[in-house]
Each structure stands twice: as structure tokens, then as C-alpha cells.
């Protein structure tokens, strides 16, 4: 038995699945950001020389998966399953990347929380003994997201200060059975699946506020289920709450008597410099994937941290629900990474 339930909603893994490798592909703005040097491949042009943004996103995901395989001298046939998703309608970036990869593909969607969802499903696959090696990969692209969710990319609008900037990039992770991997690599130890929480926010330019209640809910339930204090983690990092949503999580948890201020950070805040004119911060499925696969993973290897709780957050909206005046439900899935 490799997976069991602890508390109400948390999964504990025995034979801890190993995070055996990561590969990150970043767009130009992400490369210029403060974490630029942590990414494996940075493109200067967000089209990658392709003729559509969508093709560029597919290629980024394909290259991330290729990169993580090359890092361990593996071939596609060594991988049992490819698990991932993206933000495009019908998650076409992932399925089109999978079309050329020749690995059985499981497509997921939890908006920008897709990355932690993919890690959780991969960890379950491996911990249960159903598979030896799984690759989890997600992507997002500023321009494909803009044209689908908002306005044409060259349209001259002024975004409000609560708006976030969709991260262009892709991250892939290799999750391996304990016996296959090096002893000192980080492992995935537990996960808490999030509930869909809707606090009534209707502003599609303020997704940080819309997702904050879901993030607070998942963090609280994870700590309760595993009977831990926030300081049990060196870092609790949310996906893309931005400078608007992160303080709200602190407020919401503080009301419940949980003080996370000292250990809480957000991938969307640290991926860009405030001077980069991205307003409240970064968002998108690739936001947590780039920060985790690039920065967090490398700092875990360096020994700067030992235990991290990644809480990727997703806003489950569509242009149709927004136009019809519906509020924005949020979701957050947590996964603990430790060495």
C-alpha cells in the first residue's frame, strides 16, 4: 500500500515518490525576471519563430518534456504516463504536445492549479506501484491566454492594478519510484486536494482575491489533517495569488488562528520584479511550474530548504461565465515536497 488517507482530505504517500528531475522553458519576460537564471531554457521571442502563439506554447511543453527526459538519459518509451494540462480551450496545448511524444496521456484541468494537480496524480500513480516513471507537465502563454480570456494582444487597454500577467513558459517534472532514483533527491510526501470555493468575486481582473479563499481553505485543511503548524514547512508557497491575494490568505487564516505570515510566499510575486510592469504579479499554470521546477527545486537540491508546501491556485472561470455575470470559483491543491 503506497497511498493512504490522513485526516479528512489529505493523501499520504509511503514509498515516497521521488521528484527526480525538472526542466523549465521560459518566455522573454520571465527570463528577464529575478528567477531568470534558474530556468533551463529561455526564449527571447515569445513566438519561438512559429506562426501562431498556440504553436509556440505546444513547442514549449514539448521541449520541457524532452528536456526532463534528456536530463536523465531517458527515452519516451521509458515513461509510463504523461500527465498535464494548460489553460487553452479543450487543453489543446498539452494534447498537441502529447501527439508528438508517444506516451499515454492523461489531460487535466484546474486552471492555474493544474500543475499541483498533475504532481498529485503522478505521485499517486507512482506511490501506488502502478507505474515506475511518470512525467507531469503544464504550460501557459501570455498571448494565447490574452486572446482567449481577454482582448487581442495589440489592443490598447489599461489593465487595473489588481490584474496579473499570464506567465509564458512550461515546466515538466519526472516522478520516479523510490528504487529507481538517487537517494538525495526531493520527494513528494503528502497532498491535500482542494474544494471549489467561491467568495463572490466577479472581477476577472482580480483573480488573486477570487482564489485566496480556496488557498486559505486548502492550507488550513492540510495543516489540520496532518496535525502540523505552518512552521513545520520552511516555505508554504501559493501558485498565483499575487500581491493582492497573498495578504488576503494571511488575513483569512489569521481569523482562524493560523499565522502563516513568516512562511508564506507566492510564485506569482517572486517570478517578476515589480518594475516589470506586470501589475499585481504573475499567473497561469506555468507560473507555479516555472518557480517550482526552476527556483524551488534547485534550492531544495542546494539544501537551502528541506520542506516546502506548494499550493497552486486556480480561478475556474471562462469568458462566458464572466459575461453572464457569474462569480469566480477558486481551487487550490497542495503538495508537500521534502528532502
Amino acid at each position: 500500500m503506497g497511498v493512504y488517507r490522513e485526516g479528512k482530505y489529505t493523501l499520504k504517500f509511503t514509498n515516497l515518490p521521488v521528484l527526480a528531475g525538472t526542466y523549465t522553458v521560459a518566455g522573454p519576460i520571465e527570463g528577464q525576471g529575478p528567477l531568470g537564471r534558474y530556468f533551463d531554457l529561455v526564449y527571447e521571442d515569445s513566438l519561438l519563430g512559429e506562426n501562431t502563439w498556440e504553436k509556440a506554447e505546444v513547442r514549449m511543453l514539448h521541449e520541457a518534456v524532452d528536456g526532463v527526459l534528456k536530463g536523465r538519459n531517458l527515452r519516451a518509451s521509458d515513461i509510463d504516463y504523461l500527465i498535464g494540462g494548460d489553460l487553452l480551450n479543450q487543453i489543446t496545448a498539452s494534447s498537441f504536445a502529447a501527439r508528438d511524444l508517444d506516451i499515454p496521456f492523461l489531460g487535466l484541468y484546474s486552471a492555474c492549479a493544474t500543475f499541483s494537480e498533475a504532481l498529485i496524480v503522478s505521485a499517486m500513480m507512482v506511490a501506488s506501484g502502478a507505474s515506475n516513471r511518470v512525467v507531469a507537465g503544464v504550460s501557459s502563454h501570455h498571448d494565447t491566454a490574452e486572446r482567449q480570456f481577454r482582448f487581442p494582444t495589440e489592443f490598447a487597454n489599461q489593465r487595473p492594478m489588481t490584474a496579473t500577467w499570464t506567465v509564458t513558459g512550461s515546466g515538466a517534472c519526472l516522478i520516479e519510484k523510490e528504487e529507481e532514483a538517487n537517494k538525495n533527491l526531493p520527494r513528494l510526501s503528502s497532498a491535500t486536494l482542494g474544494r471549489v470555493v467561491d467568495a463572490g468575486i466577479k472581477d476577472a481582473y482580480d483573480m488573486g482575491s477570487a482564489m485566496a479563499p480556496a488557498a486559505a481553505d486548502t492550507i488550513k485543511r492540510h495543516l489540520e489533517d496532518t496535525r502540523q503548524v505552518p512552521e513545520a514547512y520552511d516555505l508554504i508557497i501559493t501558485g498565483d495569488l499575487s500581491r493582492v491575494g497573498k495578504p488576503l490568505v494571511e488575513d483569512l487564516l489569521s481569523q482562524e488562528g493560523i499565522e502563516v505570515m513568516r512562511v508564506l510566499n507566492d510564485c506569482g510575486i517572486i517570478i517578476y520584479d515589480p518594475k516589470q510592469d506586470v501589475h499585481a504579479g504573475g499567473s497561469g499554470a506555468a507560473c507555479s511550474a516555472l518557480v517550482t521546477g526552476g527556483y524551488l527545486y534547485k534550492e531544495l537540491l542546494n539544501g537551502n530548504w528541506n520542506r516546502i508546501l506548494l499550493v497552486a491556485t486556480g480561478a475556474l472561470l471562462s469568458p462566458t461565465t464572466i459575461q453572464q455575470g457569474e462569480s469566480i470559483p477558486g481551487i487550490a491543491h497542495a503538495i508537500a515536497i521534502e528532502r
Partner: peptide, 29 residues
Amino acid sequence: MLKASKKEEKRFANMQEKRKPPVPLGSNL
């Protein structure tokens, strides 16, 4: 709270109002 009640929505909106970045009205104008 999963789908917030009207009362919870209001409480959260108040909380959110305090944390919202100020609109740079002067410089925008």
C-alpha cells in the same frame, strides 16, 4: 464556505477592500 452566502460575500468584500492596491487616479488622469 463553499459558495459564500450573501453575508460571507460581504465580509470578504470588506476584507478585500482593505487589501486592494490603490488606483493611481492622479497619475492616470
